[in-house]
């Protein structure tokens, strides 16, 4: 028996919004420690890794490890039927071929359940080693989203250059070129507005705007985003989900032929 409950549906809606543009389907691996999903996008260029800890749920029960392959488009249709302040419970029997989403209104007067067929997906888990990154940048998630959106107008790719002075995002194309420089902040009143750079070595890496923009769909989940970079390894874009877990996106850099 698997059962996981969240007291409002908003978080789950935001999580799904953060992954459904990159992935058509995904396998949710459930165990007593929580729920994990790892999947590459169709082009195998980026990887999504979602971790939701069991202690972050309002109720969590998982008697036996369970892998549930879900069509994320279908899941989105179902979650649309939930009000933001509904309690949502995800339920499945052991070895079941369906999963049930139950939504309960605040006053308990409306209870709805939606059963969805599960899919058998080929699982291709990548082993991601613990890596010490040359540069780790923490910045407001909204600012990162804004920069990715703005620079995508100029080029298909963006160059991220990180030094101890700051981080610079650049794009150039037919229209011209664009540069956005952010300096490390000191003494900001609010932690969520801070720009913090931890640098071992400076890095210059090029990434596809299209994917960065897809990652910023996670912006509503978190005030801050963390970018971890090293030469010639994938960038990690991490959004923390308060008290529940995190979503990490990995994007391979563009490399000269």
């Amino acid at each position: 028996m698997f059962e996981a409950r969240l007291n409002n549906a908003t978080t789950l809606k935001k999580i799904l919004d953060a992954i459904k543009d990159l992935l058509n389907e995904g396998t949710f691996d459930c165990s007593d420690s929580g729920i994990q999903l790892q999947a590459m996008d169709n082009s195998h260029v980026s990887l999504v890794s979602l971790t939701l800890r069991s202690d972050g749920f309002d109720k969590f029960r998982c008697d036996r490890n369970l892998s549930m392959g879900m069509n994320l488009g279908s899941m989105a249709k179902i979650l649309k039927c939930a009000n933001n302040d509904d309690t949502v419970t995800i339920k499945a029997q052991d070895n079941a071929d369906t999963v049930t989403f139950m939504f309960e209104s605040q006053n308990q007067e409306k209870v709805s359940d939606y059963e969805m067929k599960l899919m058998n997906l080929d699982q291709e888990h990548l082993g991601i080693p613990e890596t010490d990154y040359s540069c780790v940048v923490r910045m407001p998630a909204m600012e990162f989203a804004r920069i990715c959106r703005d620079l995508a107008q100029f080029s298909e790719s963006v160059v991220i250059c990180c030094t101890k002075e700051g981080v610079k995002f650049s794009a150039s194309g037919d229209v011209g070129s664009a540069n956005v420089k952010l300096a490390q902040t000191f003494n900001v009143d609010k932690e969520e507005e801070a720009i913090v750079i931890e640098m071992q070595e400076p890095v210059v890496l090029t990434f596809a705007c299209r994917y960065l923009n897809a990652f910023t769909k996670a912006t509503p989940l978190s005030n801050q985003v963390q970018l971890s970079m090293s030469a010639d390894v994938p960038l990690v874009v991490e959004y923390r989900i308060a008290e529940l877990g995190h979503i990490r996106y990995y994007l391979a850099p563009k490399i000269e032929d």
Binding site: M40, S43, H44, V45, S46, L47, E124, H125, L126, G127, I128, P129, S157, T206, A208, V233, P234, Y250, A252, P253, K254, I255, E256, D257
Partner: peptide, 14 residues
């Protein structure tokens, strides 16, 4: 020219 490399190039399948 810049080419886009796939994830598997960096991380081994578990």
């Amino acid at each position: 020219f810049l080419s886009q490399t796939a994830m598997e190039t960096f991380y081994a399948t578990r």
